[in-house]
């Protein structure tokens, strides 16, 4: 089962899940009552009159986290094929040592990126 045909059940699984979600939303729209009102449609701000909008600028730290996350996540994705093949190599062959040091160098670049971010204060939350 290594061909693409083994992914065929995924289509039906997805269909079942989406049907469940959409059916629930539609059903409650059909069954439930509908009453609109001016006060009822206001933003909930603990009972006070809402001040301004929520579409405002927010802390730049969240952007930084997203960028650092991208660096790490892409690195990890590259590690999975290696992790699936490396243990199956013969450890006495020179290939295994080369594979090990290649990935250690790859991880070293991550560590350099991490240390750079650390010195720049990306991981500080004060």
């Amino acid at each position: 089962m290594t061909d693409l045909a083994s992914y065929a059940p995924l289509a039906i699984i997805l269909l079942m899940a989406i049907t469940f979600a959409v059916a629930n939303v539609v059903l409650t729209l059909l069954i439930g009552p509908r009453r609109r009102g001016k006060i009822k449609g206001m933003t909930y701000e603990s009972g006070m009159n809402p001040i301004g909008t929520a579409r405002k600028r927010f802390n730049v730290r969240f952007y930084l986290i997203a960028m650092v996350f991208l660096v790490f996540d892409v690195e990890i994705i590259f590690l999975y094929p290696w992790a699936a093949t490396f243990p199956n190599l013969d450890p006495s062959s020179p290939d295994a040592l080369v594979w090990l040091f290649r990935i250690l160098f790859f991880l070293l670049t991550t560590v350099v990126a991490y240390l750079y971010g650390f010195r720049k204060g990306v991981f500080r939350f004060d």
Binding site: I18, V22, G41, M42
Partner: peptide, 29 residues
């Protein structure tokens, strides 16, 4: 099921409906 499914006036209607579907589908598959 029987309660009112209320969307306040100020929300982004499409995304507001999409969000619960977008969270339940990955959780189910």
């Amino acid at each position: 099921l029987l309660k009112e499914d209320y969307a306040p006036d100020h929300v982004d209607k499409g995304l507001f409906t999409l969000a619960p579907i977008a969270i339940i589908v990955p959780a189910l598959i």
